[in-house]
Amino acid sequence: MQVYSIPKSIKKDSKFTFCKGCDHGVAIKLIAEIIDELNLKDDTIAVSSSGCSVLLYNFLDVDCLEAPHGRACAVATGIKRAHKARKDDKFVFTYQGDGDFASIGLGESMHSALRGENITAICINNTNYGMTGGQMGPTSTMGQYTTTSPLGRNKEYHGFPIKTAEQIALCDGTQFSARVALYDIKNILRAKKIIKKAFECQKNNKGFSFVEILSSCPTNWKLSPQDSHTKIKDELTKIYPLDIFKDTTND
């Protein structure tokens, strides 16, 4: 009996173009599996963004629109509302990095949450700007060495990182906000369950749902894929705890 196969919502013959050991691949695979399981493929419009996440449309076999850097939640708002106006509701989700969601696009992201837009936002948090070569991002941790914080992130000089999932949970329009990680089997399975819950939140017309995914960036962290996962497990989850910060989906 075949117990595992490539998800149907992954494009045939597509090959991920991420760096070796990057968790983006796992995240996209989980999303594809959930789209299959919830039977959303024909009704989904995905919004990709700038950064490593932009290439989503090369891998996912669903309709996809690329948003300008940071604007994915605004673009998703427009898509969702337009289809609602034509009485043909669609499933709309964004796939963004932490720089996209929580730095340049924080305004659009947070206001989509505050309005309670019935969309789902997925944010890959790898604590740096990956595609441009590992600069300090909004989620870079205190003391983290990046190409633009060569002496380590310093609170006096650089200020503090953002705890995105906690912040988004504070918005009244947010119905679901959680943080997951992908560093081992248990966490990958937990992530899938939680992303599925976020998707169901939208499917049941509850309102804004958000999942922050702690992801590895072996290339820019200058660590092996294995050591990157150890770093997430031992260091990052202490700073960015894995939890569900808001869940009103059962209310």
Binding site: A67, T77, R115
Partner: peptide
């Protein structure tokens, strides 16, 4: 939508136009 900014407004328009 009373957008949060003109940047939000034009990007909502971009998304909506794709429909």
């Amino acid at each position: 939508v009373c957008a949060e900014s003109e940047i939000g407004a034009i990007n909502m328009a971009l998304g909506a136009a794709s429909s």
